[in-house]
Amino acid sequence: MYAVYTACKEYAGAVTALAAAEKALTKQLSSSYEALVTARNAYYTLSDTLTASREALKKVTALNKLGKAEYSEVKDKQNDYEQMQLETIDTLAAYNELLYAFERLTCGGATKYLQGVGISTRTGAGGDSYAEVDRINEPYYYINTEIENMVFVFGVSIPDDFEPEITHFEIWYEGVQIGERTPISRQLRHLALDYGETNELTVRFFNDTSYVDQCVIDTSVARDVLKLKGAVIKTETEKKVGTYTVTTSSLGRVSTSALTITPDRKTGIAYFSIAYGDGKTVFTPEPVPVEDSFTYLTLLIQSLDGATLTLYDADKEKLYTGRFDTAAQTVMAVLP
């Protein structure tokens, strides 16, 4: 009975300790979240102020060029703008520290809610770094942010054997091109975008100056596959290895044909044999040198469409099985 009493007492103590720990953690989470939101709002406010300062600088610079503003006024606005840039970067850095502290506190549980707002000095929009991660064998894009320069970096990876060939890309946001057309071997660097109601960018792809395709991507995802309409790559099943001619002559009621095969250079073809239909009817018991014509009764082989060729090298070793392309009068070899 005493053992039960002791166990109950220990259990009650554990429950009290757990409740206290939960309360402390909840208070810490609440405090951290409030600090995070405050820092974010401060950054947004400074960003708006920075934009206004930039516009004021542009305006006074234009007035100075017209002779309606003193250089000292331009200098003052320039100093204000530079100071505002520094304050914005400091605020952004503070927000970044709070963000990742909150992420650690939640053991990664906040990632899906904070996706797209990672703002370390060199980070992907969804938290990916420049370090190589899982390899993708399809066309894909990646986005990184360099806060120290207040720019985002966009790049694509296209497999070497991808068809149609892609050499350049462009980025468009709400009908406005961002930056210049960029070779796929390089990255596009641009000032960080202030997205409106959508996080979507359109990426257009080109082969030199020819348009190929385009994809819409979600910038909150730092790295993803590009859904490009790749060409269907046809596997070659045969190749041309020569040409042929057929000369037909009549002697009374009998018609004969003389077949001459001319191999292409460097094919190594020196001999040939011909079978017909199911391949069991052989018209050339021995391989025929390509220098010689094969003469046959036209009645026996009315069309070369149904004939099967076997092509040999100078040692009479088999090189290919082939056929006659009667439309082009070429000899086609079946590839292994």
Results as ranks from 00 to 15, higher is better:
residue 282 V to R: 14
residue 181 R to T: 10
residue 270 A to Y: 13
residue 215 C to D: 12
residue 228 L to V: 00
residue 264 D to F: 09
residue 248 T to M: 00
residue 265 R to P: 06
residue 266 K to H: 14
residue 259 L to E: 05
residue 233 I to N: 14
residue 211 Y to Q: 04
residue 176 V to N: 15
residue 265 R to V: 05
residue 257 S to Y: 12
residue 190 H to E: 15
residue 196 G to M: 07
residue 177 Q to C: 00
residue 277 G to N: 13
residue 246 V to Q: 02
residue 212 V to T: 06
residue 213 D to V: 02
residue 248 T to K: 14
residue 265 R to W: 13
residue 280 K to L: 04
residue 180 E to H: 13
residue 200 E to S: 06
residue 204 R to C: 02
residue 229 K to Y: 10
residue 242 G to P: 07
residue 180 E to Y: 14
residue 180 E to K: 13
residue 203 V to C: 06
residue 281 T to W: 12
residue 195 Y to G: 02
residue 265 R to E: 15
residue 222 A to I: 08
residue 173 Y to I: 05
residue 218 D to H: 10
residue 286 E to W: 11
residue 287 P to Q: 13
residue 247 T to I: 00
residue 289 P to F: 07
residue 223 R to F: 00
residue 237 T to N: 13
residue 179 G to T: 02
residue 223 R to W: 03
residue 206 F to K: 08
residue 183 P to L: 01
residue 228 L to Y: 07
residue 203 V to S: 08
residue 199 N to L: 08
residue 203 V to P: 05
residue 212 V to S: 04
residue 175 G to H: 04
residue 264 D to P: 05
residue 234 K to F: 04
residue 280 K to W: 08
residue 283 F to S: 08
residue 178 I to K: 13
residue 244 Y to W: 09
residue 253 R to L: 01
residue 237 T to G: 03
residue 276 Y to C: 00
residue 178 I to M: 07
residue 182 T to C: 09
residue 196 G to K: 14
residue 276 Y to N: 01
residue 233 I to P: 04
residue 260 T to D: 05
residue 263 P to K: 07
residue 288 V to K: 12
residue 289 P to L: 05
residue 274 I to H: 06
residue 214 Q to W: 06
residue 219 T to N: 08
residue 200 E to M: 04
residue 244 Y to F: 12
residue 239 K to N: 06
residue 208 D to E: 15
residue 226 L to N: 07
residue 196 G to S: 12
residue 289 P to W: 09
residue 206 F to G: 03
residue 248 T to R: 13
residue 179 G to E: 08
residue 170 E to Y: 01
residue 178 I to S: 06
residue 207 N to P: 01
residue 192 A to F: 00
residue 291 E to N: 11
residue 246 V to I: 08
residue 236 E to C: 05
residue 291 E to R: 12
residue 174 E to W: 09
residue 190 H to T: 15
residue 243 T to L: 02
residue 230 G to K: 04
residue 221 V to D: 03
residue 254 V to Q: 15
residue 257 S to D: 09
residue 254 V to D: 11
residue 171 I to H: 10
residue 283 F to C: 07
residue 229 K to L: 10
residue 240 K to N: 13
residue 249 S to A: 08
residue 288 V to C: 08
residue 258 A to P: 01
residue 271 Y to R: 02
residue 223 R to D: 02
residue 268 G to S: 05
residue 239 K to A: 06
residue 208 D to V: 00
residue 269 I to V: 02
residue 182 T to L: 08
residue 171 I to F: 08
residue 184 I to R: 11
residue 269 I to S: 04
residue 216 V to T: 11
residue 229 K to N: 15
residue 293 S to P: 01
residue 174 E to V: 01
residue 185 S to F: 12
residue 201 L to Y: 08
residue 241 V to E: 11
residue 187 Q to R: 15
residue 215 C to G: 04
residue 186 R to G: 02
residue 195 Y to P: 03
residue 215 C to T: 12
residue 220 S to H: 14
residue 202 T to Y: 09
residue 244 Y to A: 00
residue 266 K to D: 12
residue 256 T to F: 10
residue 270 A to H: 14
residue 175 G to L: 03
residue 245 T to F: 03
residue 251 L to C: 06
residue 231 A to G: 04
residue 275 A to L: 00
residue 170 E to P: 00
residue 238 E to Q: 07
residue 179 G to I: 02
residue 180 E to N: 09
residue 186 R to Y: 14
residue 287 P to C: 05
residue 281 T to V: 00
residue 281 T to E: 13
residue 268 G to R: 11
residue 273 S to C: 06
residue 247 T to W: 10
residue 181 R to K: 15
residue 286 E to C: 02
residue 283 F to L: 14
residue 288 V to P: 04
